[in-house]
């Protein structure tokens, strides 16, 4: 067995070393750095109350702690304890605590049902069966060249940083499964490759939630919704995002033609 180096002069020299260990690994390193010290700095700067009020917005007070939580660098319990210490009334940070609870929930689900990691837990509620969905992610999605500008912006961020806002993850998952009719497993695999916080339980079961194989109906979105939450950050003009520029009623007819009536 070979003992590997752990002492480096700089981040660049560490990166070069990792490249020699894994020449097959694709892409470039993320600007987001690992380690407990970085985790503690991020934890110290969280604002759990503002998180609850702004978390759905692209520039909201999200914490970006998930890469550290996924790798166990921070435990869910210590993040919760720290958040409690920063607020006077715990009810003010309900949304924040609930978001931590989602991770605990996904872990419990997968512990109970390990086979749900890659298998549909229920049939799709889209008017289609699993065999109607493509097995593989189309190349234009992987390259971030779909022609729908806001989608391409989210993909670029995913691939270059290994982190995207939770709302953007839902948009991308919905785009892949419902707008392009690709199996959620292909998208989940793609996310796991790139996301620094890529966790099979949270990631795959969230994809199933969007797909409707772990929820009562498919999650869809339109351009108006993207504009509301990300309009000040990316190009959400109708001309650059024609595919998404529609009402929910129009999208339902277009995406789920076999379903009559409301979802």
């Amino acid at each position: 067995m070979q003992q590997l180096q752990t002492d480096f002069q700089s981040r660049d020299s560490l990166i070069s070393y990792v490249k020699t260990l894994a020449p097959w690994a694709k892409g470039d390193p993320s600007p987001i750095e690992g380690g407990r010290q970085n985790a503690e700095l991020k934890l110290a700067s969280i604002d759990p109350k503002a998180y609850g009020e702004t978390r759905n917005f692209g520039d909201g007070k999200i914490t970006r702690l998930s890469p550290y939580i996924h790798h166990g660098i921070l435990s869910l319990s210590e993040v919760r304890n720290f958040a409690l210490s920063k607020c006077g009334n715990p009810q003010e940070i309900t949304k924040f605590i609930q978001e931590l609870a989602w991770r605990d929930f996904w872990q419990r689900v997968l512990t109970e049902h390990p086979d749900w990691a890659w298998n549909d837990t229920e049939p799709y509620k889209t008017g289609f069966t699993a065999s109607d969905y493509a097995d593989h992610l189309p190349d234009d999605i992987e390259r971030g060249e779909t022609g729908t500008t806001c989608i391409d912006a989210f993909i670029k961020e995913l691939v270059t940083t290994g982190y995207i806002h939770n709302h953007a993850r839902m948009y991308l998952a919905s785009y892949v499964v419902h707008f392009r009719r690709v199996k959620w497993q292909a998208g989940a695999r793609w996310f796991l490759q790139h996301l620094l916080d890529g966790d099979i339980a949270s990631n795959n079961l969230s994809w199933q939630w969007v797909a409707s194989t772990f929820s009562n109906k498919p999650y869809i979105f339109n351009l108006e919704n993207v504009h509301k939450y990300f309009g000040n950050l990316i190009d959400t003009s109708p001309d650059a995002n024609k595919l998404l520029h529609a009402s929910y009623e129009e999208l339902q007819i277009r995406l789920f033609p076999n379903i009559k009536g409301a979802l």
């Binding site: 002492d7 892409g27 690992g34 940083t161 490759q193 790139h194 620094l196």
Partner: peptide
């Protein structure tokens, strides 16, 4: 991806 491997390695160090 390399992003994930580097993040893990710098944490391990």
């Amino acid at each position: 991806s390399l992003k994930r491997l580097v993040f893990m390695y710098e944490t391990l160090c």
